[in-house]
Amino acid sequence: MEVKSIKAPLTDEDVLSLKAGQKVLISGVIYAARDAAHKKLAELLEKGEPWPVDLKGQIIYYVGPSPAKPGQVTGSAGPTTSGRMDAYTPAVLRYGVKALIGKGSRDEATRQALKDFRGVYLAATGGAGALLSRSIKESEVVAYPELGPEAIRRLVVDGFPATVINDAYGHDLYEEGRRQYSTE
């Protein structure tokens, strides 16, 4: 299986080079944000106020890590279900976030927004939180510490494995993969 290495944050060319089904290894800076942080960020967008951390051009990873043990950079850190962020994601992509990492399918509005704003949606292996935490080299809470596991974190990753689900061209690995292997 061919694996493509990509550097975060992503340029428009990077995004356009990614195709549904491709496996990638991400290195660089990504940001952790999930349900509660998205709610706050969406409220700021509605009010036209700035975000506590500028995420234009960045990758958001839907994750709420478990607490780090002494000596660990982070606790287990696998993806959470992305669909819960669908309500906020078109606005997040319009704002300028370039890529999202989670697991599970996205709704029609989010898939359309990925095309409209040249974004990409990737999945990391759900349930592999201990394994995935190994490619996280630094972790720092940069906003909303009061949200605990749902705080926004700046993560430095090295070779973080993910699979492209929805590319900027409208392809969807979940639909295409299922069609390929269905024997119904």
């Binding site: 478990s66 660990q72 696998g78 349930g127 201990a130 935490s133």
Partner: peptide
């Protein structure tokens, strides 16, 4: 990946999943 994840969790005494 899931088998490797289970091995890491067991050996390092960390949760297999963050949830």
């Amino acid at each position: 990946q899931l088998l490797e994840n289970a091995r890491i969790a067991r050996e390092e005494q960390v949760p297999m999943c963050q949830d």
